[in-house]
């Protein structure tokens, strides 16, 4: 905002060496970047926000936003929140544990390098392939399905729960745990051995050190990472879309129905309202995350 205002008024400065403080010429160098972001990020976002408050005829209306309160979108939102919360909780706890197991190994060890690389792939690579990995494990004629059918006599057709909420939680954990390792590892690395030595010098037991020194120090980082995981799960689409091909149990899939079938709940362009709902949830969570991150960096920079 601070840049665009003077841009319009001033002519480009051909001599950048002179009058550096007053010239706005250098700001022009940002123009391509700002225009690109404006077209491909800001305009779509504004379209969503405006579209959510627009009626069929084009005037202002709260119809679509009010329709978010109907049963179907509300249930999808609830399921989405449950899914995000559970997978973030599982991911945060197990991810922190794995990160601790890794951080106790020396930084150059094979174990550490292997774990961080694998975690990088699973956390950042798209969800479609991960969904298929689990279908190959627990789906029809999957590896574990056949194995369990042979040994325990369970259903050889695969686990139908894989395509419902419990399955989504399992598959989401498969990329949430690695993400937790990646974002939480730096905080654990920042835990200085001197602090432990100081605590032990003052007569603290291991238990006291953890409860009274390490946990309080790590708490903001842990909560912040868990929030990031929550936002990540809430915004995720690919895994669920690959796993659940019909129906729309969660908000992202409801957006898919709104986009592909045009009319949901008797509302054209209902996708705008759902997308707005998504922006609001993720923005709140990411705002909290940024706040916690600032508190963390005070100690574990």
């Amino acid at each position: 905002m601070t840049i665009t205002a003077p841009l319009a008024a001033a002519a480009p400065d051909s001599d950048p060496g002179r009058g550096r403080r007053l010239s706005v010429g250098p700001s022009l160098g940002l123009l391509p970047f700002l225009v690109f972001i404006g077209i491909f990020l800001v305009i779509p976002t504004v379209t969503v926000i405006v579209g959510a408050f627009q009626s069929e005829a084009g005037g202002f209306s709260l119809e679509k936003v009010r329709a978010l309160g109907e049963e179907t979108p509300l249930r999808a939102l609830r399921e989405s929140l449950v899914l995000s919360f559970t997978s973030a909780l599982v991911g945060a706890v197990l991810g922190a544990l794995l990160a601790y197991l890794v951080v106790t190994a020396p930084p150059t060890s094979i174990l550490r390098r292997a774990v961080t690389s694998i975690c990088g792939v699973l956390a950042q690579f798209g969800g479609v392939t991960l969904a298929f990995a689990w279908i190959a494990t627990l789906g029809f004629s999957g590896l574990l399905t056949d194995l369990m059918a042979d040994t325990f006599g369970t259903d050889p057709n695969g686990s139908s729960w894989l395509y419902e909420l419990p399955g989504l939680i399992l598959v989401y954990s498969y990329f949430q745990i690695p993400l937790m390792v990646i974002v939480f590892l730096p905080a654990l690395e920042g835990l200085r051995p001197q602090w432990r030595e100081a605590a032990v010098n003052l007569g603290a037991t291991t238990r006291q050190y953890w409860l009274q020194v390490a946990f309080p120090l790590l708490r903001p980082a842990f909560l912040g990472s868990a929030l990031l995981l929550f936002a990540n799960a809430f915004a995720a689409y690919a895994t669920a879309a690959a796993l659940v091909s019909q129906g729309a149990p969660i908000t992202p899939l409801l957006i898919r129905s709104a986009l592909t079938s045009e009319i949901v709940l008797g509302q054209a362009n209902f996708g705008f309202a759902l997308a707005l709902e998504m922006i609001v949830v993720v923005a709140i969570v990411m705002g909290l995350y940024a706040w916690l991150l600032r508190r963390t960096s005070r100690w574990l920079g």
Partner: peptide, 21 residues
Amino acid sequence: FLCLLPLTIPALVVVVGIKNV
């Protein structure tokens, strides 16, 4: 801020609003 914005605005939201662009 602009570079980190896509973390807050999910790809799904961008798709919903990008039709005109």
